[in-house]
Design a protein around this nucleic acid. Structure first.
Length: 284
DNA sequence: CACCATGTTCCTTG
DNA sequence: CCAAGGAACATGGT
């Protein structure tokens, strides 16, 4: 469930559940997700430590803990990859098949589960340090984007996936933002004019903010055994079907009519990922 | 069997 | 050295 909005909703959900709790023990079932951190280092750092805060940066979760008796603060980085989930559940509850890391919090336990194990649960901050500005923050402006795009010949769609350009936009919301700003995904980054760049900044902010508010509205069952079929797709409450169906404008809608002009939505492949767009509304 | 999937990193090519 | 493209990672759904 992992682009910026999904991570933001998860962070808001988890924050009150973990802050103030103490880690009694750490169990790792898939050491790959720790890398390059060693199991012994993770244990030494986390056992006895108390969660102090939880923030989001791009698609990453940043946990800050206070060490056992010192007043030393340590940071823990989480990433959900393509299929990761994190939740807090009763200590004896059933665990998902692909559980990677477990934190014993006493009556409750924190679970990081990831079907494909593409995610991370690590003390290594290097990936976070490389991230570009937050798209919902003040640094992400038309001036900034214009400066960054002018040297790149990559298609704008592929460029938006570059986390050093802007942190948190993924394959779904890149297509969505380009549709909203009526820019062809194939347009070379350095060919966007100022008006397009201004529209794109606004569209990125809008699709992300809209998705956060959608995810905050519906009831999500983060820890449930529900079928996991995509972004916000599990455990949603009954009675929100309309908004749910209308939520995405182009992503995964190949062949279906554009919501603006009824032209069939097209799917193309860019950098080995699917891109969805309206060939009539999104002109080069 | 073939192809597809919300992400990131590494390797190769130019 | 840099930019860009593609494969790899691992598992499951259609």
């Amino acid at each position: 469930m992992p682009e910026l909005p999904e991570v933001e909703v998860l962070v808001r959900h988890l924050r009150p559940l973990v802050v103030g709790t103490k880690v009694r023990a750490v169990e790792v079932r898939k050491a790959k997700v720790l890398q390059p951190t060693k199991l012994t280092a993770l244990r030494r750092t986390l056992e006895g430590a108390t969660f102090q805060s939880l923030e989001r940066r791009g698609k990453y979760l940043l946990f800050t803990l206070r060490s056992a008796r010192g007043r030393q603060l340590v940071q823990l980085v989480g990433h959900l990859g393509m299929t990761g989930r994190m939740f807090v559940a009763p200590a004896k509850s059933q665990l998902p098949k692909h559980t990677a890391v477990l934190l014993d919090l006493g009556r409750q336990r924190f679970v990081y589960e990831d079907q494909r194990y593409f995610g991370r649960f690590t003390l290594d901050l290097r990936s976070v340090a490389k991230l570009g500005p937050e798209p919902l923050g003040p640094e992400f402006s038309a001036d900034y984007l214009q400066r960054e795009l002018k040297r790149s010949r990559q298609s704008i769609k592929v460029k938006l996936l570059d986390q050093t350009l802007v942190a948190g936009v993924g394959n779904i919301y890149a297509s969505e933002a380009l549709f909203l700003s009526r820019i062809s995904p194939k347009l070379s980054a350095n060919k966007l004019n100022r008006a397009q760049i201004t529209r794109l900044v606004a569209a990125i902010r809008k699709v992300l903010a809209e998705a956060i508010s959608f995810g905050s509205t519906i009831q999500l069952n983060h820890g449930g055994a529900d079928a996991r079929d995509g972004l916000f797709y599990f455990g949603r409450a009954e009675g929100t079907p309309d908004y749910y169906e209308e939520r995405l404008r182009v992503y995964d809608r190949a062949g279906e009519p554009c919501r603006r002009c009824r032209t069939p939505i097209r799917r193309i492949v860019q950098a080995a990922r699917g891109t969805f767009f309206c060939p009539k509304c999104q002109t080069a």
